[in-house]
Design a protein around this nucleic acid. Structure first.
Length: 937
RNA sequence: GCCGGGAUGGUGAAACUGGUAGACACGCAGGACUUAAAAUCCUGUGGCCCGAAACGGCUGUGCGGGUUCGAUUCCCGCUCCCGGUACCA
């Protein structure tokens, strides 16, 4: 028998591809082929390397890239590294190793692993975000954001110079910029402002602006923490308390793009789930903003509601404790209780407030407002279920038609007035009728209208009477764009006094300076602040010491892939025109509302400013599922006497459950038992030296739980081992075979032998005992050709719809059939090996070479993969069933008429026998296979 | 709570537009080769029933209904699981 030479040969082909740059893309000027741009969400190179979960998406993009190449496309399939980030910085704090060194080592390791899997990337496109040649352009884009404002009239971003020109000519007249405060100037008053005041005003409109936002401050560590570093209000490292304190921050005005980010989703080929996540995150809701005049005061209280149809059911107003008017609303009688409540709300962390959402709390302010329509007195309450940050920070409460208001009214015994008809069987004493259906009643001019019509009418009426206006609110907030950290892109800004100025483009890249210590400064500023010589400039101005957040570099990297070494521009316009947008992007759902929203935002800004030919970066996006690791537990009933270490143990028997490491599952039962006793002791459940003894002397293995693979859980399966043992091709195919790409699935190494066996079977069929390829020049039979074309069709269709898992069985069936027929015909196998190449590139290359080719299989184009091959037509085929006429779709190769097809079916040996002399009533055929056949009688 | 997705043998799963449910693989059982093992190959394998066997019958895609000549697929009502999100007015 032939000796299957894998994985031994893997390295050879990986070297070969590298040497000949097989997977390097061609620039538009060098190629007349159609383009295909496919990419993965690039990794952060962590210290622990890849586990078997990571490559899932990488293998999928690699298969489609190789397939497109064989199809004749100019393929760009790049890989890069998101190399700024916290772990390397934290490691630097602990060990003093420069993050650049750690990062470099990790990238080296990642690249080795990626190469080991036979993944073919375009070498000239590789990038890393921490490279100055890269972050130079990240800084450049930041400056573009800083130098832009959003014109809501034209619905696009424009240079600040346009704004200043308008201001000095017309003031704020005819101007509708997205901004923080609404400012108003005449041309004269604008020109009269000092330079500093003008700059301050402009900061209100820039797409990158300064704000004061709360950060996670940890006093004990003397540093600001990222959200991921805070667990349950304590720092992840050390477990010190964390408080929220406001700090000067850069923010990006992403909210200006809310509507365009929403609308853009419609044109994208993304999953509904993902689009929905982004929609929810943006959280657009339209309604009415209306003012309630306050009794005996000049001010009014502005509230926002999405249910203006229930206006006549208002029984009180609620304002957030942080509302600017909250304290001033308190009358003398209510002052003490009210202030105490406001104080208490302040001290409660956001987390605490969220934790007990079921708890109703609030206090009456003593003040009344007047209902804008009825003039009725409405009490004003202060309640922490109202969020200061959303809408106006004040709401109208309609207990009969809102759950929260209902609970609140119940708790404080406030009035509930029904204004929307609810079904008869609905008990409106037990709950609020919150459905947006039913007719309005007790509602003056709204009576009799259905909810949607009533909403509309109420808004129109409020606007007509000058009481309020239609308003759209977003849950979405502007994106905070600074980190008080070292290992990130320096922000290219200089402060003169407290006014920020852009660093001149000629001074980019602003290099990240060396620091003596990576430790936080203790003041909350980044370690950069400690470098006096860097921060202070000769003219007395100071540099910004914040750095950019992790998502800065990843928001535009797809643009850099096209032109990774351009030192003149961030990406060449001609190349961008040719390559964009990305045809397929594969990555995890964890980036659904972060990276994917930010990169859409940046792309839109660049598009508005004329730097990007497309408005949406990623046309088609697929979320690959995660590969999970198993967690094993042993479960046993034990006597509660001996487990007093556990809390809340019920009397009598109790069940304990202990997690045990994966490696242990393979061990002998008696060893496991011993080990369980050890674990019990380790967990101090058995301090009295009791020996494990379950009633039947045994324990129960619970069904395995699955969880993310992580080093700390110890359920990581390493791709290196898999590749060493079975070879990269087996591993690649097995990862695909495991199940649908999008699905979450546990890794189970057991099945891998099936895929391995298939590849060996192919090899053994084609080689003799002396490892020589034995192919014959015989003409293939009809059956062999049919099997081959079934395979080609299946592989094509599956890859086109990204269903890689169903292609693998097609290969197996084909191999089994060829084995059965002992088919070693050159004509058949030449094509079959090309089909196999995207999945098992190493084996395909080896056989290809043995067939006498001197160049890579991937430099070939395969006509059978091209569009015009196997074009199918359809006809409607009417049939009589039980006297009724139905029609069925008949699919057949182009150029073949119905009669010819039926003839062909009848000509089939077996079918001919069955069909002889009978009428064909129904026939459903796909090429090569009859799906359904109904005969008379 | 709300939004999205899902449930098919012992296991991972397939079935593309409603058309032979369970392809393919793992596992298991039996067999061939072998002194033996490994490797390789062959056969069987949803459940139940009849039968010496070939053949055959019934049943079966989470549960209950419906549409249809025909439903894993479409519709209505449930149960459970997974993911996202949450005092967003």
């Amino acid at each position: 028998m032939a000796k299957f030479p894998f994985p031994d040969k893997d390295k050879h082909w990986q070297q070969f591809w590298k040497q000949y740059a097989t997977f390097r893309h061609q620039n538009p000027s060098e190629s007349s082929k159609p383009k295909f741009f496919v990419m993965d969400m690039f990794p952060y190179p962590s210290g622990s390397g890849l586990h078997v979960g990571h490559p899932l998406g990488y293998i999928a993009t690699d298969i489609i890239a190789k397939y497109r190449k064989l199809q004749g496309y100019n393929v760009l399939h790049p890989m890069g590294f998101d190399s700024f980030g916290l772990p390397a910085e934290n490691y630097a704090i602990q060990t003093g190793t420069h993050p650049a060194i750690t990062t470099e080592n990790n990238i080296t390791r990642y690249k080795e692993q990626l190469e080991m899997l036979g993944l073919g990337y375009s070498d000239t496109a590789e990038l890393r975000t921490s490279n100055p040649e890269y972050y130079r352009w990240t800084q450049w884009i930041f400056l573009k954001l800083f130098d832009s404002w959003y014109d809501r009239k034209l619905n696009k971003a424009r240079p600040i110079s346009d704004l200043t020109a308008h201001l000095s000519q017309f003031g704020t007249q005819n101007l509708d910029p997205a901004g923080g405060e609404i400012l108003s100037f005449t041309a004269e008053s604008w020109k009269a402002l000092s330079e500093a005041d003008q700059q301050k005003a402009l900061l209100n409109y820039r797409l990158a602006y300064i704000s004061y936002a709360p950060v996670n401050w940890c006093e004990a560590l003397g540093t600001v923490l990222a959200n991921e570093e805070v667990k349950d209000g304590l720092s992840e490292r050390g477990g010190h308390p964390v408080t929220r304190i406001p700090m000067r921050q850069w923010s990006l005005r992403i909210t200006a793009y809310s509507d365009r980010l929403l609308e853009g989703l419609d044109s994208l080929d993304w999953s509904d789930a993902l689009k929905e996540m982004q929609r929810n995150w943006i959280g657009r809701s339209s309604g009415l903003e209306i003012s309630f005049p306050l009794e005996g005061r000049a001010e009014s209280l502005e509230i926002f509601t999405t249910r203006p149809d229930t206006l006549f059911g208002v029984s009180f107003l609620s304002v957030a404790p942080e509302h600017p008017l909250a304290a001033s609303l308190l009358t003398a009688v209510q002052k003490e209780a009210g202030l105490a409540y406001i104080e208490k709300s302040k001290s409660r962390s956001e987390r605490d407030r969220m934790a007990d959402t079921k708890q109703v709390s609030g206090v009456f302010s003593g003040t009344y407002a007047r209902h804008p329509f009825t003039g009725k007195e409405i009490p004003v309450w202060i309640a922490d279920y109202v969020l200061a940050g959303y809408g106006t920070g004040a709401v109208m409460a309609v207990p009969a038609h809102d759950d929260r208001d209902f609970l609140f009214a119940n708790h404080f015994g406030l009035e509930k007035k029904q204004v929307i008809q609810c079904p008869e069987n609905f008990d409106n004493h037990a709950a609020a009728w919150t459905e947006k259906s039913g007719k309005a009643l007790n509602s003056d001019f709204l009576n009799g209208l259905e909810v949607p019509a009533a909403i509309e009418k109420a808004i129109v009426e409020a606007e007509a009477r000058g009481l309020g206006k239609r308003k759209i609110n977003y849950r979405f907030r502007d994106a905070i764009f600074s980190r008080q950290r070292y290992w990130g892109e320096p922000i290219p800004i200089i402060f003169k006094g407290d006014i920020p100025y852009a660093l001149p483009e000629s001074e980019l890249p602003l290099l990240l300076p060396e620091v003596e210590s990576y430790k936080p400064t203790g003041t909350g500023e980044s370690p950069l602040a400690a470098i006096e010589s860097w921060v202070n400039l000769p003219d007395g101005s100071r540099r910004e010491t914040n750095t950019m957040p992790g998502w800065a570099g990843s928001s535009w990297y797809f643009l850099r892939y096209l032109d990774a070494h351009n030192s003149k521009s961030f990406s060449d316009a001609e190349k961008a025109q040719y390559w964009l947008n990305v045809d397929l992007y594969i990555g995890g759902t964890e980036h659904a509302v972060g990276h994917l929203l930010y990169s859409r935002f940046w792309t839109k800004v660049l598009y508005d400013l004329g730097h990007s030919p497309v408005e949406e970066p990623f046309q088609k996006l697929v979320n690959q599922g995660m590969i999970l690791g198993y967690r094993y537990y042993l479960e046993a009933d034990v006597d509660n006497k001996i487990i007093y270490g556990l809390k809340n143990v019920p009397s009598g028997k109790a069940t304990i459950k202990l997690e045990i490491p994966q490696a242990l599952m393979a061990e002998h039962a008696s060893f496991k038992k011993e080990r369980l006793s050890e674990l019990l002791e380790h967990h101090q459940l058995n301090p009295s030296g009791w020996k494990w003894e379950a009633p039947d002397g045994d324990f129960v293995e619970t069904p395995a739980y699955t969880d993310k693979m992580s080093k700390s859980i110890g359920n990581v399966v390493n791709p290196d081992d898999m590749c060493q043992h079975y070879g990269a091709d087996t591993f690649r195919m097995y990862e695909m075979f495991l199940g649908p790409l999008e699905q979450y699935k546990p890794w189970n190494t057991n099945g891998i032998t099936g895929v391995h066996g298939f590849l060996k079977k192919v090899w053994n069929l084609l080689h003799n005992e002396n490892d020589q390829l034995i192919l014959t020049q015989e003409a293939p039979t009809k059956e062999e050709l049919r099997l081959l074309h079934t395979l080609i069709k299946k592989v094509r269709e599956d890859i086109e719809r990204l269903s890689f898992n169903t292609s693998v069985p097609a290969f197996m069936v084909f191999a089994n059939e060829m084995h059965r027929l002992a088919c070693r015909k050159q004509e058949i196998w030449n094509s079959a090996i090309i089909c196999l190449a995207p999945y098992a590139p190493h084996i395909a290359e080896e056989i290809w070479k043995e067939m006498g080719h001197s160049t890579s299989i991937f430099t070939a184009t395969f006509p059978e993969f091209q569009a015009e091959y196997l074009v199918l037509d359809e006809i409607n085929y009417p049939v009589q069933i039980n006297g009724k006429t139905s029609s069925f779709t008949l699919t057949y190769p182009a150029g073949m008429d119905k009669n010819a097809l039926e003839e062909a079916v009848r000509a089939d040996e077996k079918l001919g026998e069955i069909l002889k002399g009978r009428e064909l009533k129904k026939l459903i055929v796909v090429p090569g296979r009859i799906v359904n056949l109904v005969l008379e009688g």
